[in-house]
Design a binder for these strands. Sequence first.
RNA 1: GCGGGAGUAGCUCAAUGGUAGAGCUCCAGCCUUCCAAGCUGGUGGUGCGGGUUCGAUUCCCGUCUCCCGCUCCA
Length: 478
Amino acid sequence: MSEPEECPMVTMEQLVSLCKRRGFIFPSSDIYGGFQSTYDYGPLGTLLKNNIKAAWLRAVVQERDDMEPLDASILMHPRVWEASGHVAVFNDPLVDCKACQGRFRADHLWLIVASHGEETKHYPIEAGEEEEALAKGRETHQIGKRWDVTAVPMVIDSPDGTPKLCPSCGGAESFTEPRAFNMMFQTQVGPVEGNITYLRPETAQGIFVNYENVLVTMRRKLPFGIAQVGKAFRNEIVTGNFTFRTREFEQMEIEYFCWPEDGPRVHQEWIDTRLAWYERYGIARENLDLYEHPDHKRSHYSTRTVDILYRFPIGFAELEGIANRTDFDLSQHAQFSGKTLDYFDTKSERRVVPHVVEPSAGVDRNVLAFLTEAYVEEELLDQKGQKSSRTVLRLHPALAPIKAAILPLAKNRDELVACAQGLARELRPHFQVQYDDTGAIGKLYRRQDEIGTLYCITVDHQTIDEDGQVTIRDRVPQ
RNA sequence: GCGGGAGUAGCUCAAUGGUAGAGCUCCAGCCUUCCAAGCUGGUGGUGCGGGUUCGAUUCCCGUCUCCCGCUCCA
């Protein structure tokens, strides 16, 4: 056998295929032809996902002295979402350009207006480009005469006199009517119509509304944090790229409460901590990147947001967002609920609304990232000198769905089978193991390679006839 | 949602207006003392609904799903 050659980069097709073939992830409602943007985790995917969540909880709760776990409900009082800003913000009005098919948030369209006496020129831009466009506009219009250059919002659905121009193609009056897309799933509570709430679009609010409960019952002082894993739902306009963007997804979120002046430092510490966690569980640093959100892209609640990006098959994309939410959420909930959510420090006699740092990771994106990172296809020559390829998942031991496979070398001898089955029975209380005797040993090894099994334990004739020893093969050399 | 492309077995792919095939996988049996060996047999399919037709997997319409782009984010 020659030295295996590794192929450079896994494609999304290869991952999807492996996931379905080996029982990691299936299309949801498969026998009905699937259902848009929904996926089910199969037996191995469930084990992998649970291992990822356990590894996260272990790192952010068990191994720290400043963290508490929580499991809040998905349905909450509808006022929660008014306080959080989601009712307003998740109602983005969108317009399409009929000329170029471009799509824009209606409230993100701006015009640079350059005027000089009777003469007026308009340049359409998108929010966030104002400063740059203003500077450029002033520069180009200063030659010769003095122009007055300003930036104004382009109001699509009101006849305010300014032209409606497409920033992409320049088309005039080519926008569709603004349509509101409420990103929250509305749902009815109880059998009587009219009593509604929402499926939570983030788990974070479940933490904020329990902040005081946890603070008091766990006798916490600042700083401390609350960690939660759970489902969230967003009625995304566009889904896709396998499980990367779905309407139902799972989050691993931390809200870390600290003194206001410590917010920026704590924020940076969490960025470093979370990066280190991904490396600890096997993600190469060169496949991780950080993205600093520019002002205009940041959420309504945040003063600084840094994304941890991973090199997915689709390119670098967000795996986790770490935001400094300041005192926005607690202040909002104090106002909307009428409860005091101040923190009083008896020693310094200070009263503050704590600031909050939020590391928010996507569980499904984590699964996808760890699978991407682990996937290796090796080209090698078999006994006959034929080229063949072997798929190996190199998962971290703590994440691997199956820890060991117990394989009899052959199944035409009862003692081999009985011994191997006995061994599997002995290991089962301690580890997730698989017993397999349905093929030649080489085939059994390859099956386990493909699902990232850590150890293959083979019972051979020597085990029975001589010394009771088995062969343990380490399939995932670190 | 808009524009473009695509749906045949678990996977990769073939074929035809007239009984839908192959390789691999999978299952059972035989064989086998360590990296997808061999032999025999077997399961399994035209996404869904409607129309045209004597007959539709093939032609037409609708629908669902997937992929690429626009947009948003965990």
